[in-house]
Write a protein that binds this DNA or RNA. Structure first.
Length: 506
DNA sequence: TCTGGCGTTGTTCCC
DNA sequence: GGGGAACAACGCCAG
């Protein structure tokens, strides 16, 4: 008799309630990760995130082997894999951490049904967010909080989230993996090649995946107590050559780090000291995560404009050329192109950099649908998280949550706030490195002699700007005003229809 | 039921 | 260079 713990997110041994539930009765434990070859081929996962995942799996496998267990990476789709495993391993029980993403919900429903059909008990535990999403919705009278303020209020009613559970530090002998299974290489962690990653295309690894790395990184930052207490997100710099924030997001995304562990460490550090507060504090960042997880869970079509009940309908105009230029760092705006280069190379960019390029792609300059930008982020970001990615793209495109659409980031001025000399641009766009400070953000304005002296002719060695920011920004403000007005009128007419009383009054 | 205040992170111009 | 206004503004919530 065996118990399977199915790892998906939650790639950790600390604060993992579902994993603890798997070892409770002392049956042999089979920790499983399912690698679907179809997914490997078709998913929007770039090489950096595949590398991160493979490192996280290897770390998990190493940790499990120290406990006389191992990770079984099983190839196939979950629906095919599990019925076979249930039989082959004489499985009695399967446990997993709840995943609220719509695709995961559908997947888990199917596996749960298959498990029932095989007489296998299914045990699900919560652990990916601070609170159980449904508890927040319940406390907010059945609705998702649509503003950060309302989320904060609901959460304060609930009190602190539960304390982390014990780390799986040792396994009773009965749980050890025995026999041939312990050394069966067909279940080994996949190589990069198996994940379709051409190693020669990889840049040096700045953020290695895995729980060990996550906890080490958390420790380093939590030891900087005064920095933690002073942390205010909007005051951190997007142009810093070393990250000015913690870069714990990829670890939270994969569940290499438990948000509750981070939360309770922050509470301890804050105790007795003056400290920054949500929404700008580090704790506030965890609450933002919670916010998008909560709204996203009860909003249909959260990752699309159409049929999305919180998303304003805006008539974006798809243009492959503009989209392509943005995606491949060829907009001709060095600040934008530098950010997109950092994203592709390193898999992580500062939050405000995300603002700058997302605004530029959508309402600010290129008028492209936010969904298209979201898909590029989904591929390239190590921390690409379904709820946060969709939520933030709606925010930045002023489609939901945020409506001051006239606050447009300038692709020229914004970077100068924290980087007058343009060191950030010089790092990521070395072809522009020799430009003088007064032209680095607008190289097309440099006289030809200056361009020659810098060894980079605009229109030849670096593109001309694809749009004129000052012109398209004004046109887009006008388009936004029209879209807002149309939305308002549509809402008014549907309100009248749904509530005749109001109509009579008017 | 109405009203006024406010919201994580803009820019430019003017004094 | 610091501060304030203009740009034009939705939806929630306390009072």
């Amino acid at each position: 008799m065996t118990t399977v713990h199915w790892f998906r997110k939650g790639l950790r041994l600390h604060d993992n309630p579902a994993l603890l539930a798997a070892v409770k009765e002392g049956a042999e434990l089979r920790p499983v990760f399912v690698l679907d070859p179809w997914f490997v081929k078709h998913a929007r996962v770039g090489i950096n995130r595949w590398r991160f995942l493979s490192q996280a799996l290897r770390d998990l496998d190493d940790s499990l082997r120290k406990l006389k267990s191992r990770l079984f990476v099983v190839r196939g789709s979950p629906e095919e894999v599990f019925p076979a495993l249930f039989k082959k391993w004489d499985v009695q029980k399967i446990t997993w951490e709840i995943d609220t993403e719509p695709y995961a919900q559908r997947r888990d429903e199917k596996v749960e049904r298959l498990a029932r059909e095989s007489g296998v008990e299914v045990v699900c535990r919560h652990g990916h967010t601070l609170y159980r999403t449904e508890k927040i919705i319940e406390a907010n009278l059945g609705k998702a909080p649509l503003t950060y303020v309302s989320l904060e209020k609901v959460v304060s009613k609930l009190g602190h989230p539960p304390k982390p559970v014990d780390t799986l530090n040792d396994l009773p002998e009965s749980c050890h993996v025995r026999g041939e299974a312990a050394t069966d290489v067909s279940y080994d962690v996949p190589s990069l090649k198996e994940l379709g990653v051409e190693e020669s295309q990889l840049e040096p690894c700045l953020y290695p995946g895995g729980e060990t790395e996550a906890l080490a990184r958390l420790k380093i930052y939590m030891e900087r107590k005064s920095w933690v207490c002073k942390f205010e997100k909007p005051k951190t710099s997007p142009t810093s050559l070393q990250p000015s924030t913690t870069v714990l997001s990829p670890y939270l995304k994969f569940g290499c780090l438990s948000p509750r562990v981070m939360y309770h460490q922050l509470i301890q550090i804050y105790k007795g000291s003056a400290h920054s507060k949500p929404p700008v504090s580090l704790l506030g960042q965890l609450l933002w995560r919670e916010f998008f997880y909560t709204v996203g869970a009860v909003t249909p079509n959260f990752d699309r404009m159409e049929g999305n009940t919180v998303c304003r309908q805006i008539p974006w105009v798809r243009d492959d050329k503009l989209m392509d230029a943005w995606t491949n760092a060829r907009t001709g705006y060095p600040f934008i192109d530098a950010i997109m280069t950092q994203l592709r190379k390193e898999g992580w960019i500062h939050h405000l950099s995300r603002h700058a390029v997302a605004c530029f792609l959508t309402r600010g300059d290129l008028w492209q649908p936010w969904e298209d930008g979201m898909k590029v982020f989904e591929e390239l970001l190590l921390d690409a998280d379904w709820f946060l990615n969709a939520g933030n793209w709606m925010w930045l495109s002023a489609s939901a949550f945020f409506n001051s659409y006239f606050r447009v980031y300038s692709p020229i001025a914004f970077g100068k706030n924290t980087d007058k000399h343009g060191d950030y641009i010089r790092k990521y766009l070395p072809q522009l490195a020799k430009y003088p400070e007064n032209y680095i953000y607008e190289p097309w304005k440099a006289p030809l002699a200056t361009q020659r002296a810098a060894g980079c002719i605009i229109g030849q060695d670096y593109p001309r700007p694809i749009v004129d920011h000052s012109i398209v920004m004004k046109r887009n403000l006008d388009r936004m005003a029209k879209a807002y007005k149309a939305g308002k009128e549509k809402k008014a007419s549907s309100d009248n229809q749904s509530s005749p009383k109001k109509k009579m009054k008017k």
